[in-house]
Amino acid sequence: MAHIPDGVLSAPVLLAGAAVSLAGCAYGLRQLAAERIPQVALMSAALFVAALVHFPVGPSSVHLILNGLAGILLGWAAFPALLVALLLQAVLFGFGGLIVLGVSVMNMALPAVLCRALFVVMSRSGNRRRTMIAAGLAGGVGVMLTALLVSLALALSGQEFAAVAKLVVFAHIPVAVIESIFTAAVIGLLLRVKPEVLGFTSTEVRDE
């Protein structure tokens, strides 16, 4: 549901989104060493594939947004990585539009960067339990912040979207719950199998 089609948002919102995303992508790309590109691309591809999984919820189904996980794994590189993923979704599946890409990237990548900060602060000790809780929190917070930004973009585009804007936030609550458990599981597994990815050496990870 993070995809807003073209034609909905107003020009000032579109411009602001484009400016923030452009700056974020420029910063993310500058920080990205050429040798890390395959790894970042791999995670971007994993997020793309994971977003295609439909989880049944009641009579309907939802798909994950995964920007919390993207933030934890990629940091600022989440900006260009999410731009690539959204661009491919637009071109291959017709999800979302072209002019809204700036806003969409901002809506997903800003929370991602915040989640990264949250995760780093909470998991510093290397305690397994704490790290997994941090991951779960980052997963849920990422989704809810994105929902808030989407609804803000809608509300700022016109009074007539106020009702939808509120609904968007509520509609994302199930996604946030699923994603929080999903993200905790992913990080739990990485912590066991390949803690280097998260910036830990294997001796740093402790159970107590």
Partner: peptide, 30 residues
């Protein structure tokens, strides 16, 4: 796929595994 934590965790492990294998692949490529 059901609507329960077991499903969400299992798919999470699946993608964790996907990432591990993928990252090792990316390392070899680099």
């Amino acid at each position: 796929l059901r609507c329960d934590p077991h499903t969400w965790r299992s798919i999470g492990y699946l993608f964790g595994m996907l990432l591990v294998r993928g990252i090792e692949r990316a390392e070899r490529i680099v």
